[in-house]
Design a binder for these strands. Structure first.
Lengths: 143, 143
DNA sequence: CTCATTGCAAATCCTTTGCATAACC
DNA sequence: GGTTATGCAAAGGATTTGCAATGAG
């Protein structure tokens, strides 16, 4: 998916922390990860990185277009691989569970609602907040 | 709109800070206010309140259903009067400008997207992030 | 008078920054 | 070797909390 030196093509030196973070996103089962989660996962794999570096790398990746940042409700940013296909998010307010969806009708009306009012819509721009009602859910977000 | 002792009807003692905050929302031209903004506006009107109290009062009002809290992107919560009518929000990422809208088609498909996936949708649940393109805009959010 | 509420300061949480050291090319 | 990136610790902004003093009913 990403060549080993994909980082260079976006103008970033290919350093160990950056490679680690990128492959984590490519390998992780969980698509949306917070800085804290990335940090803990890397520590758990025996990699010695600083949390500040994670934040810096995530921001650089976002600016380079490799990742997308979402804020969601709850105060912390989460990141996901930017694989080009547009989709929106339903976020569970209870446990932080995220599901992605795409609805062409919503896309069209959303765009119209925005442009009618003079807004320029962003790519990943639409969020629905809800309760996921999963059996394991009513707990706190597992960070 | 709110009787002077409306607070009692929601189980809150009618104290000075609470009355001040409530009437600020009822009087303010700007519908969406952050805790900091409420604080500064009250100080400016010569009222002596603590910022911590503002945060407490806002949270109590939210729980009492008088206000709705939104997080939006950018790290700070904003509140608006809960006047019962459902609407969604378009938020400018450049200046924080918020416009409300309602689109029945989006409502329906949004609800379907959520329930199809087992989610229970929230009342004020949908956010669109965009750029407002207003002449005064490209600045920072005026807090 | 009694308990809820306030104000202040200190504490938290997430994120950013300064700076000396270490890693890239 | 000259930069750029890292790690640590300290700083930052938003929000919460502990606690003694104040206020409402």
């Amino acid at each position: 998916m990403h060549q080993p030196d994909h980082l260079k093509t976006v103008g970033l030196k290919s350093t160990l922390p950056r490679l680690k973070v990128l492959s984590l996103f490519e390998a992780s089962k969980q698509r949306h990860l917070s800085a804290e989660e990335v940090y803990k996962l890397l520590l758990a794999s025996g990699d010695d990185v600083g949390l500040a570096t994670i934040y810096r790398v995530l921001t650089q990746f976002e600016q380079a277009g490799l990742l997308m940042r979402h804020h969601f409700e709850g105060g912390k940013s989460v990141f996901e691989l930017n694989q080009g296909e547009h989709h929106d998010h339903i976020v569970c307010m209870q446990c932080g569970h995220v599901e992605e969806f795409y609805d062409a009708t919503i896309e069209a009306r959303q765009k119209k609602a925005a442009t009618d009012r003079g807004f320029t819509i962003h790519d990943h721009s639409l969020y629905i907040y809800a309760d996921c009602n999963k059996p394991k859910c009513p707990n706190k977000i597992q960070s």
